[in-house]
């Protein structure tokens, strides 16, 4: 039973990272925006869900843990989506690197505000979040992860998804073909924030204690790393990237030296991927596939 105690929390973490990476991929990969403040939405989801289960409905949570869990993570997602709207409306007038830096700013502001809000424990953190549904929790995480991936996939297969992609491809052309660029940028941003918040909701219940330092700039960078490694603009890439970035530190555990330099390794990976394989793993895969096809033809 011992290895399960290690494995299950790890898989839960993996699922949350998969949702995070897939959600950032909607913004950065599909819509071509460059957001690096994703930790902020993750934080809002976590705090809102935690407040939901501990402050708003502790009795309900005790009586109906499954329903309460769903309600709480949805509160987290909705709160983050709303924050995405509030951040997105002004920020999305900016382009490229200006947008990047503005999202960093918002991410940090969210963290600093949480650090100063007494109602959620300020700098002491937010303890005592009950692990709703107990041993069933991993299944709920898995279900929502699969659900998130499915809905994002469906979204991108629809006309709305094509509108989002067209913005990445050529904003001016998209506009002239009747796409309301401002609206769909905001929409993609809100969708990304929503799913980041969902992930945050699970994270709060998974950790049972959250602190503003769980949501610093490094977290945003790690999520960015996931989609860079996997290949931006590909859902499969986001999943692969999340798996690698989550499991690599575990694989390095056997050696204390390697374990202590894991962030250094991540930094190097980030540089080398962009230099040598800018389309990430999925780009590598496609290239492999394309040359194979060419050989057969």
């Amino acid at each position: 039973m011992n290895y399960l105690d290690y494995l299950i929390p790890l898989l839960q973490l993996l699922c949350m990272n998969v949702i995070l990476a897939a959600s950032l991929n909607v913004i950065n990969g599909y819509c071509g925006l460059f957001s690096i403040g994703h930790a902020g939405f993750f934080a809002i989801g976590a705090y809102a869900a935690a407040a939901g289960s501990k402050l708003l409905m502790p009795e309900f949570a005790a009586a109906q843990p499954a329903l309460a869990l769903i309600a709480c993570v949805m509160i987290g997602a909705a709160a983050a989506g709303l924050a995405g709207l509030v951040v997105g409306i002004p920020c999305l007038r900016l382009t490229g690197d200006y947008l990047a830096i503005a999202t960093v700013g918002f991410g940090e502001i969210i963290r600093i505000v949480l650090l100063n809000t007494e109602a959620v424990g300020a700098s002491r953190g937010f303890p005592g979040i009950v692990l709703l549904t107990g041993k069933w929790f991993p299944l709920w995480v898995l279900l929502f992860t699969v659900g998130s991936l499915y809905f994002i996939h469906r979204l991108m297969r629809s006309s709305t998804g094509r509108a989002i992609l067209s913005i990445r491809e050529d904003e001016i052309a998209a506009r002239s073909m009747g796409i309301n660029v401002r609206f769909y940028k905001t929409f993609a941003f809100v969708v990304g924030a929503f799913f980041a918040g969902l992930s945050g909701g699970f994270f709060a219940h998974h950790s049972q204690f959250i602190h503003p330092s769980n949501f610093n700039f490094m977290i945003s960078v790690m999520v960015l790393l996931m989609i860079v490694v996997g290949g931006m603009g590909s859902q499969m890439g986001a999943v692969l990237g999340a798996i690698i970035v989550t499991l690599l530190p575990e694989a390095l555990r056997f050696s204390e030296t390697l374990s202590s330099i894991r962030m250094l390794i991540f930094g190097l990976i980030m540089i080398l991927v962009v230099l040598w394989q800018p389309q990430g793993l999925m780009g590598f895969y496609r290239k492999l596939f394309a040359t194979r096809k060419a050989e057969h033809a």
């Binding site: 460059f34 690096i36 960015l224 250094l264 930094g267 980030m270 962009v274 230099l275």
Partner: peptide, 25 residues
């Protein structure tokens, strides 16, 4: 320098990578 012709996002990402590497070193 190797990314000078690449999309503007690319050097931005390596810059973040470099910053992590320097910090960790």
């Amino acid at each position: 320098r190797p990314l000078r012709g690449a999309p503007r996002i690319a050097p931005l990402i390596t810059a973040i990578g470099v910053s992590i590497v320097l910090l960790e070193l």
